[in-house]
Nucleic acid binder design. Structure first.
Lengths: 250, 250
DNA sequence: CGATACATTGAGGTTTATCAATTTGTGTGG
DNA sequence: CCACACAAATTGATAAACCTCAATGTATCG
């Protein structure tokens, strides 16, 4: 049952919660992961003046490629995929984003990608126009933003290697490793992985087709590198062996 | 004839040149492009206290994948390629860097890529340990650093689309467009492009083999989309037609 | 002018894509 | 709770794009 078409907007006051934190932040899932982690309560309070909470249902877009980039988002719950489309329908997923991730802060005036909720998603939205001031005003925020960008660039470099030089099976192996590391709530302690995305999403992320993804999963299963869990979930008996494969070990 | 194996280090005083700029910066090729563009002379002077000029010959590496990331670089002349290697020799070039580009500022303690000079290269090196302080101290510098990262992330997203979803010919077309835009001194006003990199570099950047790159060039030539210049140079008669191809127009 | 590195071209093989059919999973309504 | 309908995933057969290996052509530099 999908929620309202228009994303709901949460409260926006700056009343203090516990520890002197703004109420919105006090119980935020992303408080220790997001760009706002480590900021002092007074800085957070200033930030909170301008932010709004939003919720999205599966399939809803936060923004689309070409839209004016007016809002910056921090994921507080759920999974978001970002992708680029070609005129003929070819799709490339440029990344999956989890709790604490920052999206929607491109260089240009417009978003260069579309952002879409994969499941029930909560975000913290912030007007882009205010960001420049805040970064100037709060060096510790600037530092956090730079840190987020550094990890995003690094992830991009790894993904280039994946897309340019890895075989289908190696790509899947690397993808599963990435999920275990980046998706806190998707990954069970002992190798159980709840895949939040469909085969088609994975294919578009790894530059493959659905069929090749499916066949690669089957091969990995037959090789004993993964096991089948409930639904399309996956169990990873030995992370090491998957890592070796993902690193292109001969 | 390769230069000295050890990169030469330029002077490092802070004496002022014209316009109150530090002497190293007064005649810097990258002054209006790099992260230091738009900074006030006093900020630049502070920056210049810690920077050193270095020169590299073709094939020399600025740093290698796995090295501790102790220096940040701004390219002031020449072209640098960054790449990742797999154990079995597979190589992915993650980017080419030109005048004004910033490299060597990863999230982790070590460089995740190798940086290598393609031709005679000059850079401005800066100790990473000082960067955090400076970013905190000078909001306008933080702003510039964020801007550089934003464009790097955007380039990464485009490259993912290229590697994941474009055909060989489309990749080459997009690559030539990118060079025209990003390489100021490589690109003549009327479509003449001096390729600073070998076919192998292009192949490793585009996730192809040398042979496929060569064949794609030939096909583009036969289709009238490019013409042969001196050596391996390329002339682009109609940028638009190349752009259409690079955008995956059917 | 010859040696070397680089680029191009050709023949054949491999991986992955495409098209089509089948199976599995999921949610809904009886 | 089961049956049905629909979406997603898997499997199979074939084709296309690209890779590999090998040979030839071309530029550069001593």
């Amino acid at each position: 049952m999908p929620g309202p078409q228009q994303a709901s907007v949460g409260g926006c006051g700056s009343a203090d919660g516990e520890d002197g934190l703004p109420v919105q932040c006090a119980d935020c899932m992303a408080r220790h992961l997001a760009v706002c982690a480590g900021l002092t309560p007074d800085v957070l309070t200033d930030l909170a003046e301008h932010l709004s909470r939003r919720r999205y249902s599966p399939g809803q877009t936060l923004f689309q490629e070409g839209d004016p980039a007016e809002q910056i988002f921090t994921v507080t719950n759920g999974v978001i995929k970002q992708y680029k489309l070609l005129a003929d329908g070819r799709c490339q997923v440029t990344g999956f984003y989890f709790v604490g991730d920052l999206i929607g802060m491109p260089q240009g005036a417009d978003y260069p990608v579309t952002a879409e909720a994969l499941n029930e998603v909560s975000v913290c939205a912030f007007p882009r126009s205010r960001m420049q001031d805040l970064v100037s005003q709060y060096p510790e925020l600037a530092q956090r933003v730079i840190l987020k960008f550094q990890s995003e660039v690094g992830r991009g470099q790894e993904q280039m290697l994946t897309l340019g030089r890895l075989t289908a099976e190696e790509r899947i192996a690397g993808f599963l490793i990435m999920l275990m590391d980046k998706a806190p709530d998707c990954a069970d302690e002992d190798g159980r992985l709840a895949l939040q995305m469909k085969r088609g999403d994975i294919a578009d992320y790894l530059g493959l087709t659905v069929e090749t993804v499916s066949r690669s999963f089957t091969k990995l299963r037959k090789a004993g590198l993964i096991e089948t869990g409930a639904g399309t979930d996956v169990v990873i008996p030995s992370r090491e062996r998957l890592e070796d494969l993902a690193a292109g070990a001969e």
